[in-house]
Amino acid sequence: MKRIALSLMATLMAGSAYAEVTVKSCDREVSFDAPPSAAISNDVNLTEMMLVLGLRDKMVGYTGISGWKTLDEEMREGVAELPELSEKYPTKEVLIGADADFYFAGWNYGMKVGGEVTPETLEPFGIKVYELTESCIHIGNKPKVSMDDMYNDLLNLGKVFGVEDRAETLVSAYKADLEEFKAALNPSDEPLKVFVYDSGEDKPFTAGRYAMPTALIEAAGGVNVLDDFEKSWAKVDWETVVEKNPEMVVIVNYGNVTAEEKRDFMRNNPALANIDAVKNDRFVTLEYVEATPGPRNVKAVKKLGNAFWGD
Rank of each mutant, 00 (worst) to 15 (best):
Y197M: 01
A167Q: 03
N256G: 13
E239C: 12
V225M: 09
A291W: 00
N245D: 15
Y254A: 08
V236F: 05
V278W: 02
V278K: 00
V289Q: 08
E168P: 10
A183F: 01
E218V: 09
E180Q: 11
K235V: 05
V196Q: 07
K182G: 02
T240V: 13
E287N: 08
T214Y: 04
S172P: 11
K203N: 14
E168T: 15
G221H: 05
E290N: 05
D177V: 03
F265Q: 08
E247M: 04
E247V: 04
W233H: 03
G255A: 11
F265N: 09
W233T: 07
F229D: 13
D202Q: 13
F283K: 00
A211I: 05
D276E: 15
Y174P: 09
R282Y: 04
R267A: 12
E201H: 14
N268A: 13
E287W: 07
A215F: 00
S172Y: 02
T258P: 10
V225Y: 01
N274Q: 14
A176E: 15
D276S: 13
A277Q: 03
V223G: 06
F181N: 00
P204L: 00
A273V: 12
Y197N: 06
N186C: 00
G200A: 04
L216Q: 08
T285N: 04
F229G: 11
A184D: 13
N280Y: 06
P270E: 12
P187D: 11
A271R: 15
A273Q: 10
G222Q: 03
F283L: 02
V284S: 07
S172W: 02
G255S: 12
E179F: 06
F265P: 02
Y174F: 10
K231P: 05
R263D: 09
T214P: 05
R166N: 15
A219M: 01
S188H: 07
T214G: 04
A184M: 12
V284K: 10
A183W: 02
E218W: 03
F195Q: 00
E168Q: 15
N253E: 14
A219V: 00
K262L: 09
D202F: 09
K235H: 08
E239S: 11
E247Y: 01
M248Q: 06
K182L: 02
A259W: 10
K244M: 09
